[in-house]
Design a protein around this nucleic acid. Structure first.
Lengths: 233, 233
DNA sequence: GCAAAAGTGTTCACACTACACCCATGG
DNA sequence: CCATGGGTGTAGTGTGAACACTTTTGC
């Protein structure tokens, strides 16, 4: 490649946006911010950042998650969505957005950190209009999550170490956007053998009736997934 | 963003590589080229090109397909795979590769065009080592195609307007990389109701016994897919 | 005693699997 | 007449969907 060609091609900027899904045991939510500077000052956008040529996208997303929610990387599922590449998606010039999504459990710590950063959570199906092409990114992320949840047990990243079957079901209902039958749900989950009873129960003061707590059997899943096992749903 | 920041960020180059799957009725193949200039002169690579900041990726892929195979865009399935973004994937500098894959039927015209361009087809499971991170891209593409073929009738793009059930089955066997039972295959395909008998048959001179030709019912598929219908397999 | 949430089985329909033989034709 | 490839049916198994009542306990 000649110097001239290099000058022609090497003038694109890179950024990454993140569709962060948080589950608080009740609602599945998406994180957005109000933009503090131009372009689109005041508009709502996904968390994101520009990426210097020397920085990897993974590194950038990692930094973004630290900065915005002080996350625990071992309990967070992250995956690239795809590149959003329209020529005029950003008024500053050609900016390619390599979008990601992540799934986290909403702990009080995260809630606080997000608040201090000016972030706002919106229910999964009530995300307002966003600037740039971020509506499209959110739409794409939702579809991806729906599919993933059906075929891989990614949902467990949205729950704590221990959870009740009811919480798990509620999560699946939110992500799949439809109601599920309690008995069928339990059957399916227990048949998968990927859930282990921990022996603990919920705090009897919080609910009428205590319920058993379970955890996800990661080891067994690793083994199964090596054999090309598909979850279910 | 200050001018300084702009200078810092706007120095990435964009390229797109294409994993082109071709089916000739027998074998499912992938197209590669021998690289004519540095870096990696002489190595095998996927077809691809650098993308100027003013050109969209879709446009670039379109041009690439025209240039390499003179394709018919209405009979070709194209989809973005994802962005490959490693910092040091290209010795020239930071180059983000937004990879695509496409599915085409190998007509004699395409075969000829490819030959004249110096392209070579390799059987799906016998693609040799490629330069850059193209092995990884091919691997990713194969997995994507396998999944797509299971859930959406994309396979039909690899066949002509009319095809026999045997051809269709052979294609599925190649893409899924396993053998299928003839009777079960026919049952599944006909139950989907997405296949229409055209009334024509294969040329009696070519085979011992003529067989019926079918075509894909695109209209019906459009309707079904709006309702969230998943193909099968 | 009642509201709220946990927990539990059965039946039916459908889809997937495995499996073997006859037919038409060209050579 | 035989080699090639097209075409066909059944039985068994497993999975998904629909559906209602009992138990516990805080108030």
């Amino acid at each position: 490649m000649t110097d001239e060609e290099k000058a022609k091609y090497f003038q694109v900027a890179l950024c990454s946006s993140l569709v962060l899904f948080g589950f608080d045991g009740e609602e599945l939510k998406i994180l957005v911010y109000k933009k503090l500077n131009d372009p689109f000052k005041g508009a709502l956008v996904l968390p994101g950042k520009y990426i210097a040529p020397t920085v990897s996208n993974d590194q950038a997303i990692h930094e973004l998650l630290i900065e915005k929610i002080a996350y625990d990387e071992h309990q967070t599922y992250i995956e690239q969505l795809k590149a959003f590449t329209k020529v005029f998606r950003n008024p500053l010039g050609r900016v390619v957005n390599v979008a990601y999504y992540a799934l986290v459990k909403l702990t009080p710590q995260i809630q606080e950190k997000v608040k201090s950063q000016g972030g706002e959570w919106y229910a999964y199906d009530r995300v307002p209009d966003l600037a740039f092409d971020h509506n499209e990114i959110v739409q794409y992320a939702k579809e991806r999550v729906k599919r993933r949840v059906k075929r891989r047990p990614v949902g467990f990243n949205l729950l704590g170490d221990e959870f009740t079957i009811a919480q798990l079901q509620s999560l699946y209902e939110k992500a799949l956007n439809r109601e599920l039958d309690k008995r069928n749900f339990r059957k399916k989950i227990f048949n998968s053998n990927l859930i282990i009873e921990t022996g603990n129960t919920t705090d009897p003061k919080q609910h009428r009736k205590v319920s058993k707590l379970y955890r996800f059997d990661e080891e067994k899943y690793e083994k199964l997934s090596l054999k090309g096992y598909d979850f279910l749903f």
